[in-house]
Amino acid sequence: MASIEWQTALGYAEDSAYSARKPILFYYFDPQCIGCQQMDAATYSSDTVIRFVEKHLIPLRVDIEKKSSYERYSAIWTPTLIILDYKGHEAHRSIGFLNPDQFIAAMHLGIAKTHFSVGEYDTAKVHFEKIFNHFPKENVVPEAIFFSGVSRYKHKNDPAELKKAYEKLLHQFPDSSWTNKASPFRLL
């Protein structure tokens, strides 16, 4: 049976991420944590998740008890999943149990935000679109709409892209905090 091949040292994961041009999935876990146990049993054992992680991420698993060596990431609860860019900078964070679909959607968002942060807008767009096309009901969609609009704006230098993102959020997710965050874009 296949499984995720977790790295256990941040320095090695950073070297691998830089060489492979893949973000790091930094997974804080606690062996006593029921959410972590469920992540192992239901999510990380999924063949779809295993293939996804292998293709898109450098997986790093760190016991929360060894947190002192990783304090800069301030994990206060488990499970905590942090997407780091190739240089170890945080791009996205999820806290709590995620089923396989929620996990993949959240990882696409983190990957998209990583590519956005380094100016790789076309690659970011691919991951945003995967969320919209394959995971339209997941709770990361409003945040993905927001950052997709910001990414398109940065790429094209066209404020109309921000307004489009706001209008999409207003139509699909009127009560989302991401709609509120985008509300100034209506003035563009």
Rank of each mutant, 00 (worst) to 15 (best):
L187C: 02
Y166R: 03
V53S: 02
I131P: 00
A106G: 13
M39G: 01
K163Q: 14
T78V: 03
F52D: 05
K163H: 10
Y18I: 01
I131A: 00
G96A: 09
R93Y: 14
P159I: 15
S117I: 09
L162Y: 08
S94T: 12
T179E: 07
F146I: 03
A2W: 07
G11F: 00
L98E: 08
L60R: 12
Q7L: 12
I83Q: 01
H155R: 15
T114N: 12
S148P: 02
F128N: 04
P100V: 11
K156L: 11
S151K: 01
F147T: 05
A165H: 05
A112K: 04
P136Y: 04
A2L: 08
F97R: 06
V53Q: 06
M1H: 09
K154F: 11
K137M: 11
F132E: 02
N180I: 07
I50A: 03
A17Y: 07
L60Q: 12
S45T: 11
L98R: 15
R61F: 01
K130T: 11
V150N: 02
Q38V: 02
K154L: 15
G149N: 10
A20W: 03
A13H: 13
I104Y: 11
I83P: 01
I104Q: 10
I50N: 06
A165K: 09
F116L: 10
V118N: 04
E161S: 10
K181Q: 10
K66G: 06
R186F: 01
R61M: 04
P184Q: 06
Y121R: 03
N180H: 09
A41P: 00
I24A: 12
Y28P: 00
D101P: 05
I76S: 13
D158V: 07
L25F: 09
I24K: 08
Y27P: 01
A182L: 07
A17G: 08
L98K: 14
D158K: 06
V62Y: 04
H134W: 03
T43K: 00
K125G: 00
S16N: 12
A17T: 04
I58F: 04
